[in-house]
Amino acid sequence: MTVRPTVVLIGPPGAGKSTVGAHLAQTLGTEFVDTDALVEQTDGRTISDIFVEDGEPAFRRMEADAVARALDGAGVVALGGGAPMQPSVAELLSGHHVVFLDVSISDASGRIGFDASRPLLAVNPRATWTRLMNERRPTYESLASVRIDTAGCTPEQVVEQVNAWFARES
């Protein structure tokens, strides 16, 4: 029997995937895996350093490997914002409970501050975030089992929404 994650969280930077994922895993009594953290742990460098030293294609390969490993276990998995854009990752998500955590730019900027730790947002962060979100939204929506708007919500409120949806689906 194949073990599958309980819930996979996708969405843009600032949607709350890591924070909500940790809270959700705790409420469900299961493990939490953040694939960005898994990449950093495996490689021993920050994502920013990987981007600068090896480039985005190298990071995306590492990211796809991390997603495959994370999806091989049980629990809650949070994917980096760009991970679902890779066809190999999108294919891996088939059959999983995928939750698209949606967010507006105003909420996202308040949560993450658009700092240097997010290499794709280093130059003109608001315009870049908006462009990336416009490009990524159709993919997020097509892969998601459900879309949850996190705007103005606390992590606990988002967890309540995910739990309510998950209870209906299970």
Rank of each mutant, 00 (worst) to 15 (best):
R60S: 00
R60K: 00
C153D: 10
E40I: 00
D107V: 13
V20D: 09
I112C: 13
R45C: 04
V89M: 03
L132E: 08
I50P: 00
V103P: 07
P87L: 05
L79P: 00
D43P: 01
T139P: 02
P5C: 04
M133L: 15
V67M: 00
Q26D: 13
H23S: 11
P138M: 02
L9V: 03
P57A: 01
E56V: 00
V39Q: 04
E141F: 06
F166L: 15
A15S: 15
R60E: 01
V98N: 04
M133T: 14
R147Q: 13
T150E: 06
E135Y: 08
T27E: 12
P5W: 09
A74R: 10
N163K: 14
G82H: 07
V162I: 14
N163A: 12
M85G: 11
V67D: 01
T139V: 15
P119L: 04
I148T: 13
R126V: 14
N163D: 11
P13Y: 12
A22S: 09
D102K: 08
S109A: 14
T154H: 08
A83W: 09
S109T: 14
D36Y: 10
S145R: 11
S170T: 15
V76Q: 03
D115Q: 10
V146D: 11
W129T: 08
T27V: 12
M85W: 07
G55E: 00
T130S: 13
V158N: 10
S106H: 12
L132D: 06
E56R: 01
E141C: 02
L71E: 02
A164D: 13
G14M: 04
L79A: 03
T42P: 02
V8A: 04
T35D: 08
V8F: 03
E169P: 03
V20R: 09
V3Q: 11
V158D: 08
F166G: 10
W165L: 03
T30R: 09
P87N: 07
V77L: 05
N124C: 08
E56S: 03
A37K: 10
L79S: 03
D36H: 10
T30H: 07
V123P: 05
E141V: 05
P12I: 11
A66G: 02
A127Y: 08
T139I: 15
P5H: 07
L71I: 00
D65T: 03
F32H: 12
S145W: 13
V33K: 06
M1K: 13
L71H: 01
L38P: 02
S145L: 12
R111Q: 07
D65G: 00
D107L: 10
V8R: 03
C153K: 15
L120W: 09
L38D: 14
A68F: 00
I10K: 04
S145T: 14
A37R: 12
E156D: 15
V123L: 11
Q41S: 09
V33I: 11
V77Y: 08
L101I: 07
G44P: 01
E169L: 13
D49G: 05
G113K: 14
W129F: 05
A164F: 03
